[in-house]
Design a protein around this nucleic acid. Sequence first.
DNA 1: ACTATGGTTGGAAACGTTTCGAAAACGAGG
DNA 2: CCTCGTTTTCGAAACGTTTCCAACCATAGT
Lengths: 341, 341
Amino acid sequence: MKKATGRSITIRDVARAASVSVGTVSRSLNAPDSVRPATLSKVRSAIEALGFRPDSRAQIMRRRHTMTVGFVVDDIGNPLHAATFKAVSAVMRERGFSPYLVNTSGGADNEAAAIDMLQHGRADGVIMTINSEQDPGTLKRLAELRIPSVLLDRAIPLDIDAVLTDHAIGMRQATDYLIGLGHRRIALITGGRDIRPGRERVRGFVEAFQKHGLDVPADLIRAQSLSADYGFREASTLLQREKPTAIIAAGNRILVGVLRVIQQNRVSIPGDVSLIACDQTDLALLYPGPITLIDRDIEEIGRTAAHLLLERLASSEERPAQRISLPTRLILGGSCAPVTA
Amino acid sequence: MKKATGRSITIRDVARAASVSVGTVSRSLNAPDSVRPATLSKVRSAIEALGFRPDSRAQIMRRRHTMTVGFVVDDIGNPLHAATFKAVSAVMRERGFSPYLVNTSGGADNEAAAIDMLQHGRADGVIMTINSEQDPGTLKRLAELRIPSVLLDRAIPLDIDAVLTDHAIGMRQATDYLIGLGHRRIALITGGRDIRPGRERVRGFVEAFQKHGLDVPADLIRAQSLSADYGFREASTLLQREKPTAIIAAGNRILVGVLRVIQQNRVSIPGDVSLIACDQTDLALLYPGPITLIDRDIEEIGRTAAHLLLERLASSEERPAQRISLPTRLILGGSCAPVTA
DNA sequence: ACTATGGTTGGAAACGTTTCGAAAACGAGG
DNA sequence: CCTCGTTTTCGAAACGTTTCCAACCATAGT
């Protein structure tokens, strides 16, 4: 249990102790087969004796890669991001990479900073969910990104790999289902149209009504933010004034807000209003009973992103960006009922 | 939008372009005041023209620090860890550090690997929740850790800073409250005694009974794992066989499992059984109504850990490890009722 | 005995930055 | 015009590895 001594032991110290050259020590570490057993054991015991551990700063500097990949999200409090990261981590670790996560707390500045920090030698690749899809600064930075990257659920006009979810189709299905139950006044609460999931969900929602030749309840569409607060606010005013017969809480944080309103006002689900959520979170699965939801396979999203990145990492040859789109599926819970009126 | 060219631009290229020395370029970057305005602008425009960006690999190698701190957890799917990390991040970022998170998925091996990777030059400091509190290998590695570190909610016989929660007191209070309501057959489900929170919670639970001169319902104590599955299993058998009048689900993942049982078996809360949870998660706040819970200030835990680490980071002088203990408080929800019998 | 041959080893260069001592440039005071 | 003290700049060394090339050493083949 020695104190942290000033200078640390270098490969040179080991070389001297084992009376071999630095090159040999290095090779003993990285290609043990290329050094004679006798020499190897001399080196090994010197390493042991001195307690030498290679300085990864220097290693990273010399070999031009870090064997780490970054995962950038706006809010790790979102269980979806956490699950995705875990899936990514599993694949990456298996292939010898150390994955780590950076939380930007949203904000174009923070996202830019995160990209910057990863940019030059902190990570070999990056998987990210960028919120400032439109921010010119961010876009520029992404364009100039020199390491392989994969975007999650975002589509930007750049040559970058992406793993997407078919939100439009999923939403159309869900809306369709509600319409089939006789609902017409269906409210949709979701994220802003400036970011892909919001845009696509609104599109699917609208398409479902159009397919049936029905008027789109445009006044019931609230698409501005994925936050719990937004969900709370919009659900409050909707339930108070517009009285929809069904609500689609499209975003797992939004669901938290919506459920808060439902709980506070003792709204009965599905008695007073039908409810559809997105993604299997603890809350959606457990609430009073399981909520009907638009689900997707988060694990697969993570794995797909990881593999996409690994491909790029492996072969340095250029190839056009890939966009892989994964489906959703509707899981029926107990939160929807036919309209009685 | 230039293609990734083979060799990248170095400080030497800039020096040549601006016809100054490398030293001057370096100083223009790091201490602009020490270079004449005329020279500075020459250098700046050369940098601009060439699109030079310093290679942080080399910077890290040269200056001996990375300005990053690692945050190690076993499961980032746990909302508590996520919240703690966010709090840590906020403080650290403010002070110029880039925090990042590593998920070990539990397992002594993975934890050891994470520590190893941070160890040498990946991070300047580390905040962690180590599950293998007893694992000799892990312990050894922690003892040899050469960078400042803070342990969260873990106490090991080593000279390491730690931020702890007063689980025992919190649990004693909660148990006390239930006893006051007339409960005697109180079940406790929590993590293993080999890890601090489990150990302390059991202690507090036992103390509460002893204080009242009551027999401890030892058969109702289930302390082995903090997982949702464990919560589910134990709640199932408890409700089926032992019929407690109250359950304390001490651990937010455990709560998920317990609620699953409650939902599936249509157990009425607090009609059939009273329930106390730990920590303000979405689920605990919203379930059917807010659950009575043993709460703690996660933000403060994160901030405290961050500050502890910053202190060590700032002054390199040795000082004995600090252990800071933070309180819990009981928040009354609607999940507890007096026993009627 | 002498030369190929193939596996090992030594030593130095390189990676891109920061830093340090010395040299140069500058401005002011005599 | 010279000297002195301050700023500013130069150039090289250093950080701890990896990697490359040349040198070395056996052994086997002739």
